[in-house]
Design a protein around this nucleic acid. Sequence first.
DNA 1: ACAATTCCGACCAAATTCCTCGGAATTGGT
DNA 2: ACCAATTCCGAGGAATTTGGTCGGAATTGT
Lengths: 146, 146
Amino acid sequence: MRISTRGEYGVRAMLDLALHSAEEPVPLSAIAARQDISEHYLEQLISALRKAGLVVSFRGAQGGYQLAKPPEEITISEIIRTLEGPIAPMHCVEGAHADCHHVELCATRMLWQKLQASMEEVLSKTTLAWLKDEAKKILATAAIQR
Amino acid sequence: MRISTRGEYGVRAMLDLALHSAEEPVPLSAIAARQDISEHYLEQLISALRKAGLVVSFRGAQGGYQLAKPPEEITISEIIRTLEGPIAPMHCVEGAHADCHHVELCATRMLWQKLQASMEEVLSKTTLAWLKDEAKKILATAAIQR
DNA sequence: ACAATTCCGACCAAATTCCTCGGAATTGGT
DNA sequence: ACCAATTCCGAGGAATTTGGTCGGAATTGT
């Protein structure tokens, strides 16, 4: 019942872009260093995010990555879905499956649907912009305390 | 982001008990046959459920399993937790961990906390009794249509 | 030309999942 | 007293997933 490192790193990388790529593209190495993630591994993840249209890339020197849309329009749901697959606690609620063989199984399916809906609710309603704001707040209070 | 077969089978087995073990204990073989689950594998799962105090067992001939409490008092949350471990989408929201090293990481932690809370909400508020009722409803409408 | 960078596909070790197997212990029925 | 039905226990193991690594080709600003 865990989100794997793909989703975890992906969200952190996207937040990193939200915080640092407003002006110029950010090279992978910078994200990897700040977030303490293996560069090669992160490359795989960001490649998927690019193909999903969540980031844009610029090749060559001074190249790097930027968010493809304003952070208000990028939801965590999108990020998780591209990196972890469908947000479904059970295969029977993944897409248009209706292959319930047992009666009891169908009853449990309703349970998994409720669970899925509540997860999707949270993930689709929180955006990168929200995360960015939270991160800035934390940074601000940390600065005061120092 | 999936619940594994441990959780899936566990919930189905518990529902099976809720439906069939009111009078006499139900042998493992009966549950396994009805639910189409490997008997040996199910044995492991139900052993964990017994140790967690969710089912009681009777050894020897005519033995089997029964729910340890009325189905109103057994939540899906309990079942999932005993079979899958803590309901936490991320290790950082599992118990009293506060090991956020990066500022950004702490912001994402709030996200995972929200997600965890919404999952726990659903799983702790739906009981075996609810599942049992749903299963009976489905069974009833299926009987009419036949 | 060169250095910085993305892009791509193959490969691989460790962990986890999903079981299987064999047998010991217990208990009701005859 | 025996037997059949059943739970209980621990070891083992194949398949899948996870979490990477590696090497090099392609692109582009300076």
